[in-house]
Nucleic acid binder design. Structure first.
Length: 917
RNA sequence: GGGCGAUUGGCUCAGUCGGUUAGAGCGCACGGUUCACAUCCGUGAGGUCACUGGUUCGAAUCCAGUAUCGCCCACCA
């Protein structure tokens, strides 16, 4: 597939004088789509099908969502890995998709409906779901288009939705399997109830929130007549009481016991007696249980098993009845007697007032407590007793942990393994029932005799699995699954599971699963548990956890704070590449990053820099360089600077490769930024200009070949991070043999091959020249000499490599340092006039004409340098004088110190000589 | 209550296996209309590497402790 890209002088002319990402990016994206390079077997892909496929797994964004900065960050990192793998000729699969996000989507749609004067309830389940599907059609493309605008190279032809039929089948099959395995069960347990969302929630969706509350001490009256069964049977106003403490007086209505500690002397005699629950006609026992903390409150606890987890467990131990005194909306139900119909808060107020009036409120103390709130609606979550579906996670957790312990699945960064294990070791059963409408209906059917039949068939079971009653008499569970259940199946449900598809065979397990650490439990752990259990394989090799994005002050970005950065606004203004670069540049696995205007502008400036460098290179093609693919000339036509940049470039290839391999993408971005800006633009381009200007066609051609070759390497390395800009420039570059037409499928550079191109000794010489030029610039600036003035100078270069490099690049050095030098062989000849400037480098010395500057400035500068050199000399001497250093430090370190000592001695001596002159 | 992370110039962050003089960007100061780029170029100032102790010939780096900040987990009513 040798490329015939023409290199015309128009290439540069065509390039807009200013870098306009908004013009370039959509054009480049269209080019990729046309070439069909995103699919693993895409027409334009050069994937080697014999290679191990690279499969990325991304959290599918919510279908109703808009691209936010977190999405952009995730997507950029995922895209970067896929692009690199593609350039390494691996077949790559990035299967994009959206999540139906049941509760979040209902939240959004309910808002839309409210604006239309409708509601979930006014529509009813069927019409609501129809409306939801229409809403999906409207919103679904939004996030996809936004992801594409970011330049994500996912295989869009495979886009999936967690509510599509394939996912539905995976949900049914998986649930049936878990039920058959005894891990899915229906039970009556305490669940988390959000009265606002009117559904149960998993423990993860309940946010513990600190709150200043009140601890009320309430007196309960003991029953006087042992045979009393109702309050009416008892004597009025019996004298004995027991005082309990509660933060939620309204739950008194659900009390079915009072508990004390078995060893508590204060209450020992009361155990086994009975008390009257205020407000309701109920008599309950006093029980002894070790769960009671004698030191807290009064040491006596009211037991409300229907609304408290600990109480529920106590109730089970003592065989107490469990009462739910709450309605779905959080109000008190009929069991609450006089308070039925009131909201929890209202009931509480009235009850406290009445208790106070009756004298049974003994104390009111402020109390700091933690209360559970709904992650979505912020409502106070109430524990309630319900019959719902649960998953016994312990056996699955054991497998997920084993996968990480054995190294089959790796978590990056490693420190999150501990967090992962802690959670899995203490995992509790997962309540998967949701009383919502938008989502996968639980595939469980009940017959009139309450037999449960779980079916994986789309139409449900033919008959009751226990009593064979016909399907017509069965009723399906009204509830749907927690959204995260279908998300947990994502790595394999998207590949055709439960069928043994070709995709499953080739692309499962995935290679890297990338996401933010905030959904480690919600999603990652569950994918691993479900994947290990259902497919008997790990779902992916590596878990790459990224950090969260924060504003420049380290605050979480939120709409209410108004500190959000809209990625689409950034893309429009500065470009997707700038956004991507900024996101990658500041990132490190597992660490949060701050992003603000300055980072984004810096990234845009970098793009601009690269654009202009390319414009220069393309515009400077020497006459006579033929059209068509170039060869990199070797041998005599390359100058020292060419060897230097080739050596630097090879090192960059190696370092960037290392960074990409270790997921240190921020480091890769920094390396490329510095290499392109400093090595290439600041130094090599300047050297090259001089060489291009010389009337020496073979050398001009060689220089230009190196300019394009090195630029080509940088573009390849940078492509995963800034794909559009690099693609655009690369398309205008002359090609080298054996290359494709699009950078996105061009070959990834090989460090060893690059290294072989450069002569290290010549490269070292240029390091000396750079030191010389920098030194001269410094001296001139400090002496306040006109930067444009050409100064007579004398050079005495002792280092062999530097001298050789100078001989071959004198014109460039002169131009960069703005000097008119003569080369001398002896320090005595270094005089260029009264009060000359002195520049000392490791491998030589330069003297510059003073150019009318103030001699005291020069003396100050040299004095400063001398002081610094003396300080370092003293340090080095001290170190070498230390016997144990010389004895114990490794040889090369000691030798380095000795070399340094010699160098510093010489430097000090010369500086002293110049100062005393 | 348990756990994790961070602490490096004014700001944001690099800093590998402990080893010469701790780097970069932004900001700041000075100087620049050199034909790729003012979204730029050149030069410079600015750092007790949070603190205390330890290990070591040698510590920003390893160990222990302290402080401050941030985060996660957690059924004391």
């Amino acid at each position: 597939m040798t490329d015939q890209r023409p290199i015309t002088d128009d290439s540069a002319a065509e390039m807009a004088k200013t870098y306009r990402p908004a013009d370039i990016e959509p054009r480049v994206q269209a080019r990729w789509l046309a070439a069909d390079v995103f699919a693993p077997d895409g027409v334009g892909s050069r994937a080697d099908q014999a290679k191990q496929p690279f499969v990325i797994i991304q959290p599918p964004p919510n279908v109703t969502g808009a691209l936010h900065l977190g999405h952009a960050a995730r997507g950029t990192v995922e895209d970067l890995m896929v692009r690199r793998a593609r350039m390494q000729c691996r077949p790559t699969l990035w299967l994009p998709g959206v999540d139906h996000a049941s509760i979040a989507a209902q939240f959004v749609l309910d808002g839309v409906l409210a604006a239309e004067g409708e509601s979930r309830h006014s529509l009813g389940r069927e019409r609501y779901l129809e409306r939801m599907w229409r809403f999906m059609e409207e919103t679904r493309s939004v996030i996809r288009d936004q992801q594409r605008r970011l330049g994500l190279s996912a295989d869009w032809s495979r886009e999936r939705f967690t509510m599509d039929e394939e996912s539905a089948q995976a949900v049914r099959t998986s649930f049936k399997q878990l039920h058959d395995d005894g891990l899915a069960y229906r039970g009556e347990k305490l669940i988390n109830w959000c009265p606002g969302c009117r559904t149960s929630l998993s423990d993860l969706e309940v946010i513990a929130t600190p709150e200043s509350g009140t601890l009320w001490s309430v007196r309960y009256h003991l029953v006087a007549r042992e045979d009393a069964t109702t309050v009416a049977d008892d004597e009025p106003g019996p004298p004995e009481t027991i005082t309990v403490a509660t933060t939620r007086p309204e739950t008194i209505l659900g009390d079915t016991a009072v508990a004390v500690h078995p060893d508590d002397e204060r209450y020992r005699s009361l155990v086994g007696r009975r008390v009257r629950i205020p407000f309701v006609d109920r008599i309950v026992p006093i029980v002894a249980d070790e769960m009671v903390d004698r030191a807290f409150g009064t040491g006596a606890v009211k037991i409300t098993p229907g609304h408290d987890q600990a109480d529920f467990e106590t109730a089970q131990r003592h065989d107490l009845s469990v009462l739910d005194v709450m309605d779905d909306d959080g109000s008190i139900n009929a069991l609450g007697g006089p308070f039925a119909g009131l909201s929890g808060t209202d009931a509480r107020q009235r009850m406290v007032a009445q208790l106070e009036a009756s004298g049974d409120l003994v104390a009111t103390t402020p109390h700091e407590m933690v209360i559970g709130r709904c992650q979505r609606s912020d409502d106070i979550v109430e524990p309630r007793i319900k019959v719902q579906w649960f998953l016994d996670m312990k056996p699955m957790a054991a497998r997920a942990m084993a996968a990480v312990r054995s190294g089959r699945t790796r978590i990056v960064p490693k420190r999150y393994e501990k967090v992962f294990f802690d959670w899995l070791e203490n995992i509790r059963d997962w309540n998967v029932s949701r009383q919502l409408w938008w989502g996968h209906r639980i595939p469980a059917w009940y017959c009139p005799d309450h037999h449960v039949t779980v079916s994986d068939k789309p139409a449900g079971p033919d008959s009751c699995g226990t009593c064979q009653r016909p399907a017509g008499e069965l009723r399906q569970d009204e509830d749907i699954f927690d959204t995260w259940y279908s998300s947990g199946l994502w790595p394999f449900s998207t590949l055709g599971w439960p069928e043994a598809t070709e995709d499953m065979r080739r692309y499962y397990p995935g290679t890297v699963m990338e996401t933010g650490y905030d959904i480690l439990f919600f999603w990652v752990a569950r994918m691993m548990m479900l994947g290990e259990w259902l497919t008997a394989r790990k779902p992916f090799e590596t878990v790459l956890l990224s950090g969260l994005l924060r504003d420049p002050y380290g605050k979480k970005m939120s709409k209410t704070r108004g500190n959000v950065i809209d990625p689409l606004g950034v893309i429009d203004e500065l470009g997707a590449d700038a956004l991507r670069f900024a996101l990658v540049h500041g990132s490190a696995p597992g660490s949060d990053q701050r992003l603000g205007r300055s980072q984004l502008e810096g990234a845009r400036n970098f793009g601009n820099k690269l654009w202009n460098a390319a414009r220069f290179v393309l515009g400077s093609r020497p006459e006579g360089v033929p059209d068509g693919p170039l060869d990199l000339p070797v041998g005599g036509y390359l100058g020292p600077a060419e060897h230097w940049i080739l050596a630097r470039c090879a090192r960059t290839v190696e370092e960037v490769e290392q960074a990409y391999t270790t997921f240190a993408f921020g480091e890769a971005a920094r390396l490329l930024h510095d290499a392109i800006w400093n090595d290439y633009c600041d130094w090599y381009l300047e050297f090259a200009k001089v060489r291009l200007a010389a009337e020496d066609p073979p050398r001009q051609a060689a220089t230009w070949a190196v300019l394009t070759w090195v630029l080509d390497r940088y573009l390849r390395l940078l492509h995963p991070i800034m794909p559009h800009l690099t693609e655009e420039i690369w398309g205008r570059l002359p090609s080298f043999p054996h290359e494709g037409e699009l950078l996105i499928v061009a070959a990834w550079p090989d460090a060893a091959r690059e290294k072989a191109l450069a002569d290290q000794a010549q490269a070292r010489g240029v390091d000396g020249l750079i030191e010389l030029v920098s030194g001269i610039r410094n001296a001139r600036a400090e002496a306040r000499i006109d930067p444009a003035a050409w100064l007579p100078a004398a050079l005495h270069i002792t280092d062999v490599d530097t001298a050789s490099a100078y001989h071959r690049s004198a014109a460039a050095v002169e131009r960069l340092a703005r000097i008119r030098p003569r080369l001398v062989t002896d320090q005595v000849d270094l005089e260029v006039g009264e009060g000359a400037l002195t520049v000392l480098i490791r491998g030589g010395e330069a003297r510059l004409a003073r150019g009318g500057s103030d001699p005291t400035l020069e003396r100050e500068r040299l004095s400063k340098e001398l002081a610094e050199a003396e300080r370092m000399l003293a340090e080095t001497e001290a170190r070498l004088a230390n016997e144990s250093f010389v004895k114990r430090a490794p040889g090369p370190i000691v030798q380095a110190a000795r070399d340094r000592l010699i160098e510093l001695e010489a430097r000090v001596e010369r500086l002293r000589a110049r100062l005393s002159a």
